[in-house]
Design a protein around this nucleic acid. Structure first.
Lengths: 137, 137
DNA sequence: CTAATCCCAACCTTTCTTGTTGGGATTGCT
DNA sequence: AGCAATCCCAACAAGAAAGGTTGGGATTAG
């Protein structure tokens, strides 16, 4: 159970954008260089974040990416969900997922609780929190 | 971020063993059939659980597997760790892991907290709890 | 018109997951 | 002794997923 690079990169990029106070769009190349993330790969990650409504992109010269909402209103959970889809550890947790053992499956309870714990932890942290922590160091 | 089949199977098998009150070893074939898990695959999972000290195997006729400790003293976390190694979402969380950005990396805080949430959730559930839930239905 | 920039589809390589196969070692029963 | 049930283990293989690259197109400020 590992976090994908996509997620890690995505959160890093979002925190980076959250620390950018200028109000100017930040070009991909700058984010990539500053965070040490392969540019073409980051581009696809940002595309997903844009489709998820988390960042706003501006094309052309002086274009780039900005947060679409205030950093305090974006949780890490939002970022992860935009990149990985609904966070659910096993397919059967939301609806049974076609598993005929779902009813009475005790281990399913485990994953459900785990899902809740993860959701809780991730939705309780905003980009603002992280940007503030980053600023201290 | 998905739970591997290994883990899911492992937990299911352990809960199954926990519901077995006879004190007799349970053969692989029975666990496999009852839980609908491919036998050869389950065998390797049980081998890991045995190496982790969670189950005890008896060879020969009338042999099989049993829990090595009382069900109340085995947490789901124990099972997952035996199967997947120390549960840590990103390599850098425990010790920095060679990432030169670790100092001052704000996103690392996220994964650390997430690790804690997951550990907490999983170590708070024992096989006894799950076996009891399973018995109700 | 041009350079900077985002957009996107297709591809590639490596690793992980999920198994399977085939043979060996123990052990209880007759 | 011999046999059948059972665990033990290493090696292999197909498919999926992760991580990343390439190449070309569309927009836009200057």
């Amino acid at each position: 159970m590992r976090i994908s690079s996509r997620c890690e990169y995505g959160v890093r990029a979002m925190v980076f954008l959250a620390t950018q106070t200028g109000g100017e769009p930040m070009p991909l190349s700058a984010i990539s260089a500053s965070e040490g993330i392969p540019m073409a790969f980051l581009e696809r990650i940002l595309a997903d974040l844009r489709r998820g409504g988390l960042v706003q992109a501006t094309r052309g010269v002086n274009g780039g990416y900005q947060l679409a909402r205030p950093a305090g209103e974006v949780s890490v959970s939002d970022v992860v969900v935009a990149l990985e889809g609904p966070l659910s550890l096993v397919g059967c947790v939301p609806d049974g997922g076609g598993c005929d053992r779902a009813v009475g499956c005790s281990s399913r309870q485990v994953w459900r609780r785990l899902d809740d714990a993860i959701s809780g932890a991730l939705s309780g942290i905003t980009l603002e929190d992280l940007a503030a922590e980053a600023a201290i160091r």
